[in-house]
C-alpha cells in the first residue's frame, strides 16, 4: 500500500512539469498579479486546435498566440470580461470551456435538474401508490371466487383420501 502510494506520487511529480510546460518562459509577464490573471483566463479558454484542452496547457501554435494576446490585452488594461468578449467575438461561445448561461443554453443547464425532478416525481408517485394499496389491506374475494376455492379444497381432500 505504502509502496503504491509512493509510486503514484512519483508518477504525479514526474508528470507535473510536462503538464505545466505549455506556458513558455518568454510569455510570462513580469507583473505577478497580471500573470496570475492571465493564467486564470487561459485555463477557461478552449484551444481551438486540440479542442478538449485549455490554451493554458496546450502546445499548439494558435494557443500560444492567444496566450500572448491575452497577456497583451491585460497589460493594456482590459478587464477579464473584455478579454472573454474579444475571444467570443472571433471564435464564438465554443471557445469558452464553461458554456455561458443564456436562453440558448438553458436546455443544457437545466436538463439534469429537470430529469432528476421527473425521476423523483415518478418514484414518489410509485411509492405512494404501493403504500396506499398496502394500507387498504388485501381485497375481499367475491362469492364466485370463494366457491371456486371451496371446490379446489374439496378436490384436494378427495385425492388425498383415495
Amino acid at each position: 500500500m505504502r509502496r503504491l502510494r509512493f509510486l503514484v506520487a512519483a508518477i504525479l511529480i514526474g508528470v507535473a512539469p510536462i503538464l505545466s510546460l505549455a506556458v513558455e518562459p518568454d510569455e510570462i509577464l513580469d507583473d505577478p498579479v497580471l500573470e496570475a490573471r492571465a493564467r486564470e483566463i487561459s485555463a477557461q479558454v478552449r484551444c481551438v486546435v486540440c479542442q478538449n484542452e485549455s490554451i493554458d496547457t496546450s502546445n499548439a501554435g494558435i494557443a500560444r498566440d492567444l496566450r500572448i494576446l491575452i497577456r497583451e490585452r491585460l497589460v493594456a488594461g482590459d478587464t477579464d470580461q473584455e478579454i472573454f468578449d474579444f475571444l467570443v467575438a472571433r471564435y464564438g461561445d465554443f471557445v469558452l470551456l464553461k458554456p455561458p448561461f443564456k436562453p440558448e443554453t438553458w436546455a443544457l443547464w437545466f436538463a439534469p435538474f429537470v430529469i432528476a425532478a421527473a425521476g423523483a416525481a415518478g418514484i414518489f408517485v410509485l411509492v405512494r401508490r404501493v403504500n396506499r394499496r398496502a394500507a387498504a389491506g388485501p381485497g375481499q374475494l367475491s362469492e364466485e371466487e370463494l366457491a371456486q376455492i371451496e371446490k379446489i379444497i374439496q378436490n384436494e381432500k378427495a385425492e388425498a383420501d383415495s
Binding site: 481551438v48 501554435g61 494558435i62 498566440d65 472571433r90 471564435y91 464564438g92
Partner: peptide
C-alpha cells in the same frame, strides 16, 4: 507573419 490577422478571422488551423 505574426498570425494576428488570422486570429481576427477566428482561424483554427
Amino acid at each position: 507573419l505574426s498570425g494576428r490577422v488570422a486570429i481576427e478571422w477566428g482561424l483554427t488551423g
